[in-house]
Amino acid sequence: MLLADWGRRAAAFGEWARGRPFAAGCLLVASGAEIMLMPVVRARLVVHTGVGGYAGFLLGLFLIAMGAAVCFAVDQRSVIAVLAVLAALAAFVLTNLGGMLIGSLTAIVGAALAFAWTPRADG
């Protein structure tokens, strides 16, 4: 019974995810987390890291917020995509090459997916 319940929930979640640019949101959240956490993870010392540290934290947080926003404010996806790309470019310059390029590239691909996502009237 528990398994059937779980299956029904998974199906409902799948339906929910298909109704929005979910993959795009996930990529944006992942990129934000990468940019934000890269200087922190496995660090042996917590030190004052200057402008790069704060910028990375803020831009990472912003990208995570954009990832969530694209899932919950589907109509605003074009604007969100543009904002996310600007944040990704800013992160590239301001924070460790945008998480050593990985974060910035992930964010740009995610933003492009969000921008390209289109609802189907028939579905």
Binding site: A112, L113, A116, W117, R120
Partner: peptide, 15 residues
């Protein structure tokens, strides 16, 4: 409501 990614639009933004 369902949706899908339009790949030309994707390229238009990505490039």
């Amino acid at each position: 409501m369902r949706g899908s990614v339009r790949w030309r639009r994707f390229a238009l933004f990505l490039v």
